[in-house]
Design a protein around this nucleic acid. Sequence first.
DNA 1: GATTGATTTGAACGCCCGTTCAGATAAAGC
DNA 2: GCTTTATCTGAACGGGCGTTCAAATCAATC
Lengths: 195, 195
Amino acid sequence: MARTQGSHSDITGPRLRDAARSLFARFGYAAVSMRQIAAEVGVQAGALYNYTPDKQSLLFDLMKAHMDELLIAYDAAMPQGAPLERLEQFVSFHIRYHAERPEAVFIAYMELRNLTDGNFAQIEELRRSYEARLEGILTAGVTDGAFEISDTRIAAMALIAMLTGVNTWFREGGRLSMEDVEALYWDMVRKSVLR
Amino acid sequence: MARTQGSHSDITGPRLRDAARSLFARFGYAAVSMRQIAAEVGVQAGALYNYTPDKQSLLFDLMKAHMDELLIAYDAAMPQGAPLERLEQFVSFHIRYHAERPEAVFIAYMELRNLTDGNFAQIEELRRSYEARLEGILTAGVTDGAFEISDTRIAAMALIAMLTGVNTWFREGGRLSMEDVEALYWDMVRKSVLR
DNA sequence: GATTGATTTGAACGCCCGTTCAGATAAAGC
DNA sequence: GCTTTATCTGAACGGGCGTTCAAATCAATC
């Protein structure tokens, strides 16, 4: 027995990424075996090595793709206008984008320590780049006198930590709608930066 | 060969917990073996089972002890006075207490999914209890008109996420002192809840 | 100094790990 | 329909896993 009916690279490749994302998010990178991933894909473990050189690359590619797509999506929806408006759009974008991909977000935050040094450096650079976009908005607001922030770098990290925290409790169909959540967080963010 | 010189329960027990805390924080529960922990303690793997029934209990005991001690420490320093003063004391306590035990905090946030269902429920209950203390301050502030918060439950989780985020970047001896950090975060928290 | 009990070793248990690869099979191209 | 190529299987590699336990050794007691 070998190649099975319907087997195809275009199918197995994405299925591998989906299975790895789902399993890594649920049980953690170290706790998930290539055999478990293969079972989820519906294939033997050896076949996975047609699509990834090793397990580490599987993790890194997921995280890299997530960060790349985050930056592309943000830059495509690049907030315009006064700093306060841009900040509101950032808050809305961040909450919404992250709530829509809880697995990728979870992995991006929890599995950093399982990256090799070089891979870690790349992901961290992308993260810094995202934080810099928020910090840019904050410094613009400070410059034009709308915001009162004594350390925009810390404020950016503090706000992102707060916003990303939504993912730990938000569930579709729960007590609050996505719009409710955005409004609640925007209220806190807005007040925290105004003079 | 068997029992070595200087071996003693009073020494090995704490050393086991210290080694497990350090290694779990650095590499993650799933990625650390009992043999690695034993090597750090300076003993063979089998000896660890005089001090813990199994690896899962080792993780749970660390997390349970951390949460218990957090609640005891907070209740001992129970904030007094007007809601705004109590909130300021909460912020100071939280940042300081968490910055002093980065390993235990890291484990408490990252290893929840490696707990068995029953153990997870216990830790989550303790966490809710801690969040409830902050929410109590917020509702008191809303009641007496000092605060303007439309959802105190969400606000409590948002603020805790923001404050705990300090641990991801704060390093002793860095650009900012502990006092600087407390002042920066208190400024943001204070403004975010005021009307 | 002999005895007792606490503590540790070292080997073993069955099982799972990431990865490789020859051989088998299905799909694609002619 | 035959050949080629992409894809997958199944077995194997060396190694590590959590846990158990008899035997050995140390510390404390008498």
